[in-house]
Simulated assay, not measured.
Amino acid sequence: MAELQMLLEEEIPAGRSALLDSFTNLERVAEYCESNYVQSPDKHRALEETKNYTTQSLASVAYLINTLANNVLQMLDIQASHTSVLLFL
């Protein structure tokens, strides 16, 4: 029961918050990349930098989504096992 409580009160809200923060950070990265590309005399280098930021940002978001999804699945598994125990009582 403590594991379920930790998931509901800490892990899942923290994961959701991290995704919301990621959204804000992605907006900043996009603004930076656009500005950098427009102002850069070396468009090829600016484009490569944008690709690198994009790859890193998407990997970070994918990791956050995966972690949150795993926590939600774990929560559902715990709830299902508790429900099945109650049904047999």
Rank of each mutant, 00 (worst) to 15 (best):
N36S: 13
L86K: 13
E27S: 14
Y32A: 07
L87M: 11
Y32G: 02
Q56Y: 12
A18R: 05
R28L: 08
Y32S: 09
N71Y: 11
L26I: 03
S57D: 06
M6F: 13
S35K: 13
L64V: 06
N36C: 05
M6E: 15
N25A: 13
N66S: 07
E10L: 09
A69Y: 10
Y37L: 15
R28M: 00
I78Y: 01
Q39P: 03
E9N: 09
E11K: 11
P13K: 03
Q39R: 12
A69T: 08
Y53E: 12
S60P: 07
L68R: 05
L19C: 07
L4M: 05
Q39I: 04
C33H: 00
D21G: 09
L86G: 05
R28F: 02
L68G: 04
I78K: 04
E48F: 07
Q74L: 12
V38K: 12
A46M: 10
D21R: 11
I65S: 02
N52T: 01
L47T: 11
V61P: 03
L64S: 02
K43W: 07
E9G: 00
A18V: 02
V38I: 14
D42C: 04
K51E: 15
N71W: 12
A80K: 15
L19H: 01
E34W: 04
S22T: 10
M1C: 11
S22P: 04
L68W: 05
N52F: 09
L20M: 11
V85E: 13
V85K: 13
S84E: 15
N36V: 09
Q5W: 05
N70G: 13
A14C: 10
E34Y: 06
I12E: 07
S17H: 14
P41L: 06
T67P: 05
E34F: 05
R45D: 11
A69W: 01
S22E: 15
A80C: 03
C33L: 01
L26S: 12
H44G: 08
G15W: 00
T67A: 05
S57L: 02
N71V: 03
A69F: 00
A69V: 00
Q74R: 14
V61D: 00
L4S: 03
Q5C: 02
A46F: 08
N52Y: 02
E49V: 06
A69M: 00
V72D: 06
N70P: 06
E11S: 02
T54Q: 06
E3A: 11
C33M: 05
A18L: 08
N52W: 00
D21S: 11
L26Y: 05
L64H: 08
V85P: 03
H44I: 14
L26E: 13
D77N: 15
L26A: 10
L68P: 00
P41K: 09
V29E: 10
R16W: 02
D42M: 00
E34P: 02
D42H: 10
